[in-house]
Simulated assay, not measured.
Amino acid sequence: MNNLKKIKRIKTLIDRLEKNQSVTRGSLTRVLGEVGIRSLDKQWGLELKSRTYKPKEIVEYSERVRRGLIYYALGDKQSLKGDGYKARNSFHKAESILENAVEYLREVVTTDSSLRLWIDRDVGFGVEVELCPVGIPRPVWSTSNYKSQCSLPKVTKRDLAREMLQTELEKLVGREPLELENLEFGTKRSFDISSFSGFKF
């Protein structure tokens, strides 16, 4: 496949991917080659692996929140049973644990700002946080109904394939001579600087 045909084919594949149409592995192999396909498979494997990763600081924060919410749930049960004194003590304990958890979270996020991506809402200093199941910040992997509808963007295999095709296209376009169209005859010819060797610039 010459470069011009390959460029046209890559553009077609990119267009199909952007329109969410099917693109076969064979089609990708013809333009990316076996090495390119292996690279695509490797990148996809790394992407899948990254989805199971959880920063230890956020895991620690999540565990602290869990302990606080246990006391909060206990307070709810005690309140329903009419034991107001025990309920107040449980709620107070819950708020204390949750407050400490939020302070810990703010400290680690200040140290490493990338950890903000793993929390469902802003937790910066000065931001008011409700110390209850509804208001407490949650990790993005939380399955709680109270988690803000926020999560890390997930890259699809189609995204990776499109990116690789785009990179290959840019390489080919950079190597391919410009094509000029002869307006009088409607034919195309390659732009070759040697054609102007007799001219002075």
Rank of each mutant, 00 (worst) to 15 (best):
M1Q: 10
M1D: 07
N2T: 09
K6E: 11
I7N: 06
I10A: 06
I10K: 05
T12H: 11
I14W: 05
K19P: 01
K19G: 01
S27R: 09
G36T: 04
I37F: 00
R38V: 07
L40V: 00
D41R: 12
E47R: 10
L48Q: 12
L48I: 15
L48W: 05
K49V: 08
R51F: 01
T52H: 11
T52F: 13
K54V: 03
P55T: 02
P55R: 06
E60W: 04
S62P: 00
E63Y: 11
E63V: 10
V65A: 06
R66G: 01
R66P: 00
R66F: 07
L69Y: 00
I70R: 15
Y72M: 03
A73D: 15
A73W: 10
G75Q: 00
G75R: 02
G75P: 07
D76G: 08
K77E: 15
Q78D: 09
L80Q: 13
G82C: 04
G84Q: 08
Y85G: 03
N89Q: 14
S90T: 01
S90P: 01
A94M: 01
A94F: 01
N100C: 02
A101N: 02
E103R: 13
R106F: 02
V109M: 07
T110K: 14
R116I: 02
W118M: 02
I119E: 03
D120P: 09
D120F: 08
D120G: 05
R121E: 05
D122Q: 10
V123W: 00
G126I: 02
V127Q: 05
V127K: 12
V129W: 11
C132I: 03
V134A: 13
V134P: 02
P137K: 01
P137V: 07
R138G: 04
P139K: 05
S142E: 03
T143A: 11
S144R: 01
Q149W: 04
P153T: 02
T156W: 10
T156Y: 09
K157C: 10
R158W: 05
R158V: 12
A161H: 04
A161S: 14
A161D: 10
E163D: 14
L165E: 05
Q166W: 07
E168C: 09
K171Y: 07
V173E: 15
R175M: 12
P177C: 08
L178M: 13
L178C: 11
L180M: 11
E181T: 15
E184C: 05
F185K: 14
R189A: 12
F191P: 05
F191D: 03
I193R: 05
I193W: 09
S194I: 12
S195E: 14
F199H: 10
